[in-house]
Write a protein that binds this DNA or RNA. Structure first.
Lengths: 167, 167
DNA sequence: ACTGCTATATATAATTT
DNA sequence: TAAATTATATATAGCAG
């Protein structure tokens, strides 16, 4: 889409790489917005620029809000590891984390069990297909805290489902 | 980009909405891939189709792998709530969750502290800007489990940072 | 739904300001 | 060096099978 046909290979010039990112980033953000409004699709887009800056898009739906919050936590953690030697940065991170924790403290009034959206009771094979179609490759996880975190999450999910199966 | 200029408004025809999603979904997926390879950017893209099917893209980097795994957990949970009345679906979910838990069990050999990538020691204001530029709106979270989950995560992050500040 | 086609709208690489 | 312009490549709306 430019004056020259472009090979999709890593651009080794840091300057033009950043320019390309800036342009294409805006483009894809626009596409995500269009897809979301046009088709009513729940879209979450996360982009870390070559210099590490995060840009994200999510429409106002439920799934994306949760994803956004999760990613925020992760991005803070990753920034923390990148800037371990920067005292002042750590202090700023800390302040922000405390603030977020306070907000999160107030969320407990919501309860998912009051919101069972069973209107989408589709055929069994459809449901199964969905579950199996998403198989994450977990071989590249480096943070032990993350692994444990997810492990706990999945374990709780199992317990919860098992409990509801018995009821 | 079609034969007619299109208003970016919700398409109320379910059939053509699905077709538009199918085409534009592929397009944005391609854009995400290009952005990632061309600019070396860490991109995560998550799209739920109008019928609820998840398509995701992440390059092979660390951040996105974690995000992908997180989102997988969330998507299973959300599907679970949508299909509460479907016994067989629950059983299939359960099988898959158990399998994932086993994989996660084997991840503990990685340790983030051996991988401190301090090469990006930039100016303070840059770091601060990054942290503050991402302010998630947490007002639309409906799952109490999710809120607690994130709260715990953030609390642990605080403790860890405070511990390292003292050292 | 799913391909392929084509006319047209959009995105963007190179260039200029 | 960032923003605007321009020439071209790409994406896709409307069709057809």
């Amino acid at each position: 889409m430019g004056r020259k046909r472009l090979l999709i290979k890593r651009n080794d010039n840091p300057c033009s790489r950043q320019i390309a990112y800036s342009k294409r980033g805006k483009g894809i953000l626009n596409k995500a917005t269009e897809l979301s409004t046009l088709c009513g699709a729940d879209v979450a887009l996360l982009m870390f620029s070559p210099t590490g800056r995060l840009t994200s898009y999510t429409h106002k739906g439920r799934v994306s809000q949760i994803v956004k919050l999760t990613v925020w936590s992760l991005s803070v953690f990753l920034l923390y590891f990148r800037h371990l030697d920067n005292e002042e940065f750590l202090y700023e991170s800390l302040k922000h984390l405390k603030y977020e924790a306070e907000i999160l403290d107030k969320i407990e009034r919501f309860d998912a069990l009051e919101r069972k959206p069973c209107e989408l009771n589709r055929k069994k094979y459809e449901a199964q297909e969905k579950v199996w179609s998403y198989s994450p490759d977990v071989s590249n996880i480096y943070l032990i805290a993350e692994a444990q975190h997810h492990q706990q999450f999945v374990t709780k999910a199992i317990q919860r489902i098992e409990k509801l199966k018995v009821m």
